[in-house]
């Protein structure tokens, strides 16, 4: 099961990395007035645009304008001609109708997962590009949390004494505030929260379990022979902590990291669902759910079912991976007696 989950995460990572090649309205590569361009890069760097297409007034509509302004041009387009940020209009692509909205926006050949009820933006494209946000949130916020947690835990566990006492109180302090309460309080102190702020906040609040585990491991390993040996040949504190003990204590810490990624994705989706996420247009899975929630009475099920399933599968995959690591590293579970 854990391997299956790992495969799924691998698949999602590919989707995330190559999202502009899967769904988008900007050519992957095109030749225009004698030069070769890669307009799909504009999806990776928000706010940046090729000056030449701005100057020639393409207004993000490539197929028609490329032909009109340079008959000799050619272009390779993404697999699905749909945009996560705007509605595709009639005639943009030869003989293709524009995106419908409302009840007419149900899943069809044009819009695989349907469209937003209000704006008519394609949901498949939004979800493909939203994969980038979901995975990024998981990795970045858990990465921040892991750095803080491991450092705090290592210092507390290795130095012991009053440092340990102080840091343990700090861990307890953060643990005592309900995480959602703290995250909301932090989130509203920012004027215009972006997805990066959200990741930082999730990282700053989610490190306690890793700190506790690292501390316990360090307390245990501090007295072991190899540490005493390292100390006797004159290795410095930092060297012992991070070169000798840390690699030996990393396995149990991997478990809360995997679960932490699942929790981060979950909280990001939940906050976006409640409208506390990064402001639209921002194709996060939670934001799609949010628009589904506001129009739920109209019965646009595709706005809820597809992103909801994606969130569920991703959280499930990370939980399975965490469980797999736990089983692999915990000797008590490794050998079932029955």
């Amino acid at each position: 099961m854990a391997m299956l989950a790992l495969l799924y995460i691998g698949f999602l990572s590919l989707v995330a990395i190559f999202s502009p090649l899967i769904a988008g309205t900007k050519p992957i590569v095109c030749r225009y007035k004698g030069e070769v361009y890669f307009p799909c890069i504009e999806y990776y760097i928000r706010g940046w645009k090729y000056p030449i297409f701005l100057k020639d007034r393409f207004r993000n509509v490539f197929p028609k304008n490329l032909k009109k302004k340079d008959p000799d041009s050619w272009a390779i387009f993404p697999l699905v001609y749909q945009d996560p940020y705007r509605r595709v209009r009639k005639g943009e692509w030869e003989d293709r109708p524009g995106n419908q909205s409302g009840a007419e926006g149900r899943p069809s050949q044009l819009n695989l997962f349907g469209t937003y009820g209000t704006s008519g933006i394609d949901i498949f494209a939004s979800m493909v590009h939203g994969t980038r946000i979901a995975l990024l949130v998981g990795f970045v916020s858990t990465g921040i949390a892991a750095v803080i947690g491991i450092t705090v835990g290592a210092i507390a566990g290795y130095l012991g004494g009053w440092v340990d006492m102080l840091l343990s109180r700090l861990i307890e302090l953060v643990l005592c505030i309900p995480s959602l309460v703290l995250i909301l309080a932090l989130l509203v102190t920012i004027d215009r929260p972006s997805i990066w702020h959200m990741m930082a906040i999730l990282g700053l609040t989610g490190w306690t379990s890793m700190a506790r585990l690292t501390r316990a491991e360090f307390l245990k390993l501090r007295q072991s022979e190899f540490v005493i040996a390292a100390r006797s040949i004159g290795a410095g504190r930092l060297r012992i902590m991070f070169r000798h003990i840390l690699p030996n204590s990393l396995a149990p810490v991997m478990v809360p990291i995997a679960f932490g990624i699942a929790a981060a994705i979950l909280i990001e989706a939940g906050l976006s669902l409640l409208g506390f996420g990064a402001p639209p247009p921002n194709p996060s899975w939670g934001t799609i759910l949010n628009s589904g929630k506001t129009t739920i009475q109209a019965g646009y099920w595709w706005q809820i079912v597809f992103p909801g399933t994606a969130i569920f599968l991703t959280v499930l995959a990370y939980n399975l991976i965490g469980e797999g690591i736990q089983e692999a590293t915990d000797p008590r579970l490794a050998n079932p007696g029955n």
Partner: peptide, 23 residues
């Protein structure tokens, strides 16, 4: 149970609302 454990409750809430209150 494992499936349910990983199923986000807010997603479940929306699914159930969609099914029982709308459909």
């Amino acid at each position: 149970l494992y499936m349910l454990y990983s199923f986000p409750s807010f997603v479940a809430a929306l699914f159930l609302q969609l099914l029982f209150a709308v459909k």
